[in-house]
Design a protein around this nucleic acid. Structure first.
Lengths: 213, 213
DNA sequence: ATCTGCTTGCATCAATTGATGGAGAGACTA
DNA sequence: TAGTCTCTCCATCAATTGATGCAAGCAGAT
């Protein structure tokens, strides 16, 4: 039994998938209430009734976009985890930062969607939650900050969160932050990576020592 | 010659000020496009035409809210700077984090407004920019990260930014992040302070050494 | 060719929303 | 009292927006 979302992902040329792709782009730029179904339909080149035929009401489409995005992010994190597996901690951190920066930079809609979903939630609508907690605990364990899921300290979670939020904000707010920092595109991305490394590595190494003692 | 904003601030009981206060609350919760002038008018207990009489179009009111918020934040930062002036660096950092956390926690609309203004910008409208750069450079200098305004390294700005964005996100996203971390209200605030101290202090101390050498 | 099921666009609706005109209430002055 | 100025609300508009009914198009099966 395939969900509508799985069906859409399977064939990227299907109308359902095309709508989903455009919707992601537009929702991530304007948020839920800043986006109209007509905007999306126009971007795809179809009538809004076709959009409603495939996805039902606006909130349903928005939810599908969120779930789709979340799934993509999780897949990427799994991929990174496979890459860094077995390596020593500092190397692991460095690679993880590097890879996730590159990935999010190329897919900056992801960060926008997640942050917007956190800061503005359409009221009265039944909007799905982003499973931030899974991601945070996943990273914490993968970084050796905790042995099992239920034994992660608040402090550890908060530190992982600082890195995640910083990264997300740097990517999502790139347009506004890069003139402030004074670095564009690749240069900007490098400063971000450097900064995250600078912050992350001592924090995690120290944290790990605390756990092992 | 007093601007409308100054006039409104002078008398908090004036209709202009009451509208401004309600508008701030509602805009910060729903963003620009998620907020209707009717919501604001209803919260104040007036007709929308009264709102339009005092503030003109929606974007003007939104701009006034942004400017008002920015001004308040700048005043608070100045106050903090006075408090920490002359103290040794680590103490300065600790106090600054503590004070700004408390302030933003009590006035969490500020962080929401700023972040929303960065991630979703109403298109076609003439919305004022938040002077993030002033704040960042101000902090950098106050923290001894640079000697004058034009000689702040990209790295220094990025590090100040990490702290600012983390703080803003922790406050603005409190509702969603506190269950993840597993700490509520005052406990949450303490974890945030602790985490920021943990990250900030080594970064800034090391940076200062680099400058002085 | 006819039937069936899936897909698409046209026309349309009701509700919402930003915005305004004008009338009336109240205060103050002459 | 009459005049004026400020502020408030009621009524209303045009545009936008989420959503749907329906007929036409089209492919494949019978």
């Amino acid at each position: 039994m395939a969900t509508p979302l799985e069906k859409a992902r399977r064939d990227p040329n299907s109308m359902k998938a095309k709508i989903l792709t455009s919707a992601r782009k537009i929702f991530s730029k304007n948020g839920f209430s800043g986006t109209t179904t007509r905007m999306i339909a126009k971007a795809v080149g179809i009538d809004i009734s076709t959009l409603y035929y495939h996805w039902g009401e606006k909130a349903d489409l928005y939810n599908a976009v969120l779930m789709d995005t979340q799934e993509e992010l999780k897949q990427e994190l799994k991929r990174i985890e496979r890459v860094i597996h077995g390596k020593p901690l500092p190397k692991r951190l460095e690679i993880a930062i590097n890879e996730s920066c590159d990935f999010l930079y190329k897919n900056s809609e992801i960060t926008n969607l997640i942050l917007l979903n956190y800061f503005t939630k359409p009221k009265g609508k039944d909007i799905a939650e982003f499973h931030f907690i899974d991601i945070i605990t996943g990273i914490a364990i993968s970084m050796g900050l905790a042995m099992d899921k239920d034994k992660i300290t608040k402090q550890a979670k908060a530190r992982v969160m600082v890195v995640m939020l910083s990264l997300f904000n740097f990517i999502a707010g790139k347009k506004y932050l890069s003139p402030i920092i004074g670095a564009e595109s690749q240069d900007y991305l490098n400063v971000v990576k450097e900064t995250l490394n600078f912050i992350l590595i001592p924090a995690f190494v120290q944290d790990k020592k605390a756990i092992e003692s």
